[in-house]
Simulated assay, not measured.
Amino acid sequence: MDIAFSQACENNKQPIITVLQNAFANTKRVLEVGSGTGQHAVFFAKQLPQLCWQPSDLLVNHHSINSRRQSSGLTNMLAPIVLDLHQPWQLALAKPSLQGVIDGVFTANTLHIVSSALVKLFFTGVKQSLVKGGVLCVYGPFNYQGKYTSQSNANFDLWLKDRDAESGIRDFEHIENLAEEAGLALISDNPMPANNRLLVFIMN
């Protein structure tokens, strides 16, 4: 089985880690939701040796994540767990070693891929899993005041909706509202390459 590769991960990993090094400075264990190819997990775990990085995704993506983990030799990158946004996160985090210690959550390029219903369930999962004072970092494209930030994002949104009508670039204001309902407060909204953003929240 081939190991999946994402050029986007290679392009954005350095700008993202620049923010994460500050956002996760006091974090001990990060749950990555939607680890995909595992490229981010390996790179971030290497750059943040003081914390444990917990990848997660649907089982179909575990081969690439595990292959990269094994090749990296990293001891602070854990084996991936199965996390399905349709299911309560407690099912994925049921291991005794994981309970009550998630003080960081990271996700990249997921909220515009999944349905709007699953976006809401994502924040439900964060609310149930992230400890007080924990940090949530969300990377991806967002609209502001209902407007695209670039023509490329507008074109991308059309492609997403043609592929799945329930997907699409989310409004920043909607995401902030869902975060607030989950007990999160926005710390920073960081510009990223290719018309993306990195939103950082803290759990109150």
Results as ranks from 00 to 15, higher is better:
L98T: 11
R170F: 07
T124C: 08
N190V: 08
A179F: 02
S64R: 13
G100I: 15
Q39P: 10
L58E: 07
V114T: 02
I175Q: 01
E32C: 08
N12P: 00
C9L: 06
V105H: 12
S152P: 14
R197E: 00
G133F: 05
K46R: 15
F172C: 04
V138D: 00
D171F: 04
P55S: 12
I65P: 05
V101F: 10
G104P: 11
G146Q: 11
R29M: 09
V200Y: 05
L51V: 03
F106L: 12
W159Y: 13
K13R: 15
D57R: 07
S167A: 13
H174K: 11
S35Y: 07
S56A: 06
I169E: 00
T18R: 14
F201G: 03
F106N: 01
A41Y: 09
V19S: 05
K120W: 03
K95V: 06
N155K: 14
R69I: 15
P193D: 05
N12E: 00
N26P: 07
V60S: 12
Q87I: 14
L118C: 04
L130G: 13
N109S: 13
S150G: 08
G34Q: 01
L121R: 15
Q50N: 04
L118H: 06
A92H: 09
N204G: 09
C52G: 01
L83A: 10
S56D: 06
V101T: 15
S64W: 11
Y144I: 14
A165F: 02
A92G: 13
Y144K: 11
F43A: 13
L98G: 10
V138R: 00
D162V: 01
I175S: 00
L199V: 00
L198P: 05
S67H: 15
M203A: 12
N11G: 06
Q145W: 02
F5E: 13
N153V: 01
L59R: 07
S97E: 12
Q54D: 09
D103M: 05
S56L: 08
V126N: 03
L198S: 04
I187A: 11
G183H: 06
F123I: 06
I17R: 02
W159A: 10
F44M: 07
D157P: 10
S129G: 08
E180H: 14
D162A: 07
S72P: 09
H174D: 14
A154D: 06
T110W: 04
Q90K: 11
T37P: 09
H86Q: 14
G100D: 10
Y148P: 08
V105D: 12
L199I: 00
N204R: 09
N61L: 12
A108T: 11
T124Y: 02
L178W: 05
T37N: 15
L199Y: 02
L130W: 05
L198A: 04
S64Y: 11
L58Q: 14
K28L: 06
S116F: 12
S150A: 10
A165L: 09
F106I: 03
V138S: 01
P141D: 01
H40L: 08
L78V: 13
I169P: 00
S67R: 15
Q39C: 08
L184C: 04
V60C: 10
H62K: 09
C137D: 07
V138A: 02
F156M: 13
F5P: 08
S115Q: 06
A4G: 02
F44K: 03
E180M: 10
V114D: 01
F44P: 03
Y144C: 10
V119W: 03
V42S: 07
V135T: 15
